[in-house]
Simulated scan of single mutants.
Amino acid sequence: MNKTLFMHIVDRLSNEFHFFRQKKNALGRASLSPLQKCTEVIRVMAYGSAADTVDEYLRLGETTTRSCLENFVEGIIYFFGYEYLRRPAPVDLQRLLDIGEQRGFPGMIGSIDCMHWEWKNYPTAWKWQYSRGSGKPTIVLETVASYDLWIWHAFFGPPGTLNDINVLDRSPVFDDIINGQAPQVTYSVNGREYHLAYYLTDDIYPKWATFIQSIPIPQGPKAVLFAQRQEAVRKDVERAFGVLQARFAIVKNPSLFLG
């Protein structure tokens, strides 16, 4: 994270979020500064280390670090969520459709996939709720991402022995379609008109009209070309996961923080 962005976040949180304001205790001593609290949060997120790794250096205990992270996340969602954690507006949707058509997939508005985040310091009583047979609990993140790494749908953390399919069963990704509030989309393929946008997926997902999968064993040049294009464009969501893990080691390595 560049310094300008970081200081903007610190300034916004310290001015408008009560937890990050510097206070004084009963002896008149100043408490932790907003800069100390936000620095500790960024350290935990960027390096994925335990909450008490540098407690003597920054003078933050483990419990305080947890509180800082929880309040930091709440503050970011409250102040910046309307801009960066929203569903596509009509202008955004049209841009996604235009880019999808240029890449050979008219009506495509993103790629959907799941990522499993290993949970190391899990509560023992919860272990088998989050295990998939390997003995290592994982927390699942379902994401829809577009070509520009914009993650505009995220469904995270449901309990159970989950894979991509039963996460999809609980996910709100199709709530707009079910409620009849899906955006109006019109495009033509092979002379036939369609009115439902779709996502690119891998083979584990069901064969629904809203999912376009690759061809496992393509026969003929047309099928081979389609499989190559579909698999190349579907990498958008995997690239988004890669960038997310590269920037924030907290979601790359086994989680030491939650427990």
Results as ranks from 00 to 15, higher is better:
M1T: 08
M1G: 13
F6H: 10
V10D: 03
S14L: 06
S14T: 08
F17M: 12
F20G: 03
R21M: 13
R21P: 00
R21E: 14
N25V: 12
G28D: 05
R29E: 13
S31E: 15
P34N: 06
L35D: 13
Q36S: 12
V41Q: 08
M45R: 08
M45Q: 11
M45F: 12
A51M: 15
L58W: 11
L58M: 15
L58H: 14
G61R: 04
T63W: 07
T63M: 07
C68K: 08
N71H: 12
G75C: 07
Y78G: 00
G81H: 03
Y82L: 04
E83K: 14
E83L: 11
E83Y: 10
E83I: 08
D92M: 05
L93P: 03
Q94W: 02
Q94P: 03
L96V: 02
L97K: 01
D98E: 14
G100M: 09
R103F: 05
R103W: 07
G107Q: 08
M108L: 13
M108Q: 05
I109A: 12
I109M: 10
S111P: 06
D113S: 05
D113C: 04
C114Y: 03
C114Q: 03
M115T: 15
W117I: 05
E118H: 05
E118T: 10
W119N: 03
K120R: 13
N121D: 01
N121P: 01
Y122F: 11
Y122W: 00
A125G: 10
Q129K: 12
Y130M: 02
S131K: 12
G133K: 14
G135S: 07
K136G: 00
P137R: 02
I139R: 02
V144D: 06
A145F: 01
I151F: 06
I151T: 09
W152T: 01
W152V: 02
A154T: 07
A154E: 03
F155R: 00
F156L: 12
F156Y: 11
T161A: 15
T161R: 15
N163E: 04
I165Q: 12
V167M: 04
R170P: 00
S171D: 06
P172D: 10
V173R: 01
F174T: 10
F174R: 11
D175R: 10
N179K: 15
Q184A: 15
N190F: 11
G191L: 10
G191R: 09
R192D: 09
Y194T: 05
Y194V: 09
L200F: 06
L200C: 03
T201H: 02
T201V: 10
I204A: 15
I204C: 07
Y205R: 05
K207P: 00
W208M: 12
A209I: 14
F211K: 09
F211L: 07
I212K: 11
Q213R: 15
Q219P: 02
P221R: 14
A223S: 14
V224S: 12
L225I: 08
F226R: 05
R229F: 06
A232P: 03
V233E: 05
R234I: 02
D236G: 02
D236C: 07
V237Q: 04
R239W: 01
R239D: 08
R239P: 02
A240P: 07
F241C: 10
V243K: 09
V243W: 00
Q245P: 02
Q245S: 14
I250A: 15
I250V: 14
V251K: 03
P254V: 01
F257C: 09
L258C: 09
L258Q: 05
